[in-house]
Design a protein around this nucleic acid. Structure first.
Lengths: 142, 142
DNA sequence: TTACGTGCAAAGGGTTTGCAAGAGT
DNA sequence: ACTCTTGCAAACCCTTTGCACGTAA
């Protein structure tokens, strides 16, 4: 599963389409987001964005991420015991393995699990609006 | 799936076995926990415990919950957008459906999903230490 | 030009912690 | 007695927000 299909350009277009202004700061944040191959938190995104534009503040990083999340352009993941981490929403739906030793995040996808979830909810009289499936793991052997 | 198999007595024993003192405050918190049929948060547990012993502070509720969690006697769930909610760990493993409209929590269990998770992790070179599976749902029809 | 966006610093909300007083064992 | 536990208030951490200034369109 490869990351970063979304280009900064595409993200900008998506925002513009919603009447959102592209400022220097937002451009920097979008670039950093589109280039991220990992799942950085707000502080890390702030650090990276500042390398492009010194003036970007952490508050703006948070405001931009919240806006992007509301547009469905970015996903926010609140894994256990860490600040929220973000990724662009360009990939098809997937869930996450979190390496307990390194914090590294690996993506996976299982239609079977997906279907089972829906069936279980159905049986209890519910529709699944969204779900959260996280596997907290350790490397085998080692 | 019925709740509250754990009696306050059993919880006390479990704590005592670990050299933990049973104070008035802890007794109250354990009683409240053992009688809970829902998934209350710390503030709600505090409210209920105070009905038994006025002197219980919120800090002690948190300290006791943390201790109980460390002994594996209580599970802490950090569902999206709400303070952590707690339940005694006397039931066999299960996952949760969260009703988005009411906040109500319904438990379910799926060995199939469990097995699929393990298989997926295995294939990627990981052992699952623990997982988190939450279905955020709405009632059908209605 | 004019609304929208920004940085800064302060506030928020849930949870944890330092400290001196209190209480199990 | 001796050590663990408590209440209180302050601190924490991540995140959001009020305000006066800046700036994209």
């Amino acid at each position: 599963m490869t990351h970063t299909v979304a280009t900064a350009k595409k993200l900008e277009e998506a925002l513009r389409a919603d009447g959102v202004r592209i400022t220097r700061q937002r451009a920097a944040i979008l670039k950093v987001l589109s280039e991220a191959e990992d799942h950085p938190d707000a502080t890390e995104l702030h650090r990276r964005a500042r390398d492009i534009d010194e003036s970007v503040s952490l508050a703006t990083v948070y405001r931009t991420l919240t806006a992007l999340e509301e547009q469905g352009i970015v996903h926010r993941h609140s894994f256990e015991g860490t600040p929220a981490r973000f990724e662009t929403a360009d990939l098809p739906h997937h869930d996450h393995i979190i390496d307990l030793d390194t914090g590294e995040v690996v993506e996976f996808r299982s239609d079977k699990i997906e279907r089972l979830q829906a069936a279980i909810a159905e049986e209890l009289g519910y529709d699944v609006v969204r779900h959260r499936l996280e596997l907290y793991c350790r490397r085998k052997d080692k």
